[in-house]
Design a protein around this nucleic acid. Sequence first.
DNA 1: TCTGGGGTCCTAGGACCC
DNA 2: TCTGGGGTCCTAGGACCC
Length: 413
Amino acid sequence: MEKVVKNKTILHIDGDAFFVGVEVAKNPKLKGKAVVTGEEKGIVTALSYEAKALGIKRGMSTFHVKKYFPKVIILPGDYKSYAKYSSLMFDIVRRYVDDVEEYSIDECFGDLTGLEHPLKMTYRQIAERIKKEVNVELGLSVSLGVAPTKVLAKVASKWVKPNGLTVIEKDNVKEFLAKTPIGKIWGIGPRTAEALEKRGIKTALDFVNKDIAWIGNNLSKPYEVIWQELNGISLLEIDPRPKTVYSSIQKTRTFHPATNDKLFLFSQLSKHIEEACTKARHFDLVARKVSFFLKTSNFEYHTCSVNLKTSTNAPEMIVTLAEEKIKEIHRRGVLYRTTGVVLHDLVSSDTTQGDLFGRSAQANKFEVVHKQIDTLEKKFGKKVLYLASTQKAIKRKTGATEAEDLDRDLLFL
DNA sequence: TCTGGGGTCCTAGGACCC
DNA sequence: TCTGGGGTCCTAGGACCC
């Protein structure tokens, strides 16, 4: 049987300066003002168009903003609200579209294919309705793109921003691609863009005009997919599954100044392990592999990873491992700016394997204890209990006094 | 871009096995 | 002991995304 390639119509919605958008929706007095979020992190994580116009950029330190742009309003991130508005936005899309992929907190894709007749609207009209309802009901500004593939829908939603709606038809794809620098295409980052530009490929149209064989010979597989998608052939599917399955969980932290203090670095790792394990327990996942890294002030990674004999989400054994392994990767005289822990090969913990091959009794015992601690912490707030090895990281972070530290010492496991 | 934090996927190359 | 060739599995690391 011949495989029928169906023409698809994909919708992409992108929140405009989403975090700030939500802040304005919560407090309309902020409308039209230069607003940034990220106070709690010390760097700008999102900024209003008015702030952008002043020359403020993402990643700029809030200290710098305060000093040079004293009128800018700096807000702490309110991630609970962002998540709430996000899911309200996706719900509006689901009024019209069955298959919705929640791609990130402020973006989703929807498969509009075949909805013209049942909804008695053109694709553009469907998008207009969704946009209007998000604008009116949530007070959020969003930009929408409608196109034959996901990659083209991303091009479309970026075309007019903020508050735009752009439809790319099969026949006018090339007009859009001619005006799109190759590095702006979803999936083509700075490395690949630079390599392509050196070979004379500057726009997405230049890329599409290359032979598919050339792409295959010079680039890796994902770029062949991008090539097809830009040519209007839909290969990337909408994945409507809720995003609760992680294949890895990581916790990292950068600190200043960079340091060589092994004990401090270890206790940072210890804290990361606890946090990562807490998240794993929340999703009932256990890790089969864990890796640790130290990042130097030159942005080099010193990594090591370990396969766990017993998969687990309890931090004790992992912390012991980290203590050994840090000796291997830590070097004298090197300054480190970031520490990180990644739990890999996560599998559901309730797929209880037989005792022989499964989790050891000890791992299970720890996990049960931690489940109880999790409940306790939900009641009394975060960080009621933590491992002794994490102490130094907590101390340094909060700048707590000796007396306060002593108080907390009583709660050690 | 003087670079925060949390994810995914792909590939080259080594180890090991006929 | 030396010689092929081929397959699979795993690892580290790169590149990309928000």
